[in-house]
């Protein structure tokens, strides 16, 4: 059974068919060729597939593709154009990406936080990315990068 879905993907309207039970992650990676959200566990346990749906943080692996009909779906690719998001610059500057596989999800989660809470405390940063696992860094440079951007954006 296939269902048509229409939504905007990183600002571009798309229409396609989704199989019953198909996850948004699979739709993005297999049908739309957007490989920026990553598969890590398929059960919402790692955050590597974090995306934004209508501005809110969501896990693409847990989201049924057909439920995004009419929604705005954004992956980290949306943040990179035309210029890099300051968070992306900060992740680079702080060496917050090692293997980099968790990074797109981390950045999406962090951007969602800063959009609603431009001046988060360290604890609020930790809470906002607590669903995103990183196996390489020990998290410290990630927290530093997000706090650095928050300080910048508030003072700007």
């Amino acid at each position: 059974m296939t269902t048509p879905v229409h939504f905007t993907h990183n600002g571009r309207p798309v229409s396609l068919f989704t199989e019953a039970g198909e996850s948004l992650l699979s739709l993005l990676r297999l049908k739309l060729g957007d490989q920026t959200p990553k598969y890590g566990c398929g059960q919402g346990g790692c955050g590597a597939c974090s995306v934004r749906i209508d501005g809110q943080l969501r896990l693409a692996c847990l989201t049924l593709a057909e439920t995004v009909d009419g929604a705005e779906v954004e992956t980290v690719a949306a943040l990179s154009a035309p210029n890099l998001d300051p968070l992306q610059e900060a992740f680079m500057d702080h060496f917050a990406a090692q293997c980099g596989y968790c990074t797109p999800g981390m950045i999406v989660a962090a951007r969602t936080l800063l959009d609603t809470n431009p001046r988060p405390s360290r604890d609020e940063v930790i809470e906002a990315i607590s669903g995103n696992l990183c196996r390489c860094t020990g998290y410290e440079p990630i927290i530093d990068a997000i706090l650095a951007v928050a300080a910048q954006e508030v003072s700007a």
Partner: peptide, 12 residues
């Protein structure tokens, strides 16, 4: 910064 950093923070 690492030379592969940009590719990683953009998911590419």
């Amino acid at each position: 910064p690492r030379p592969d950093g940009r590719a990683k923070i953009t998911g590419q």
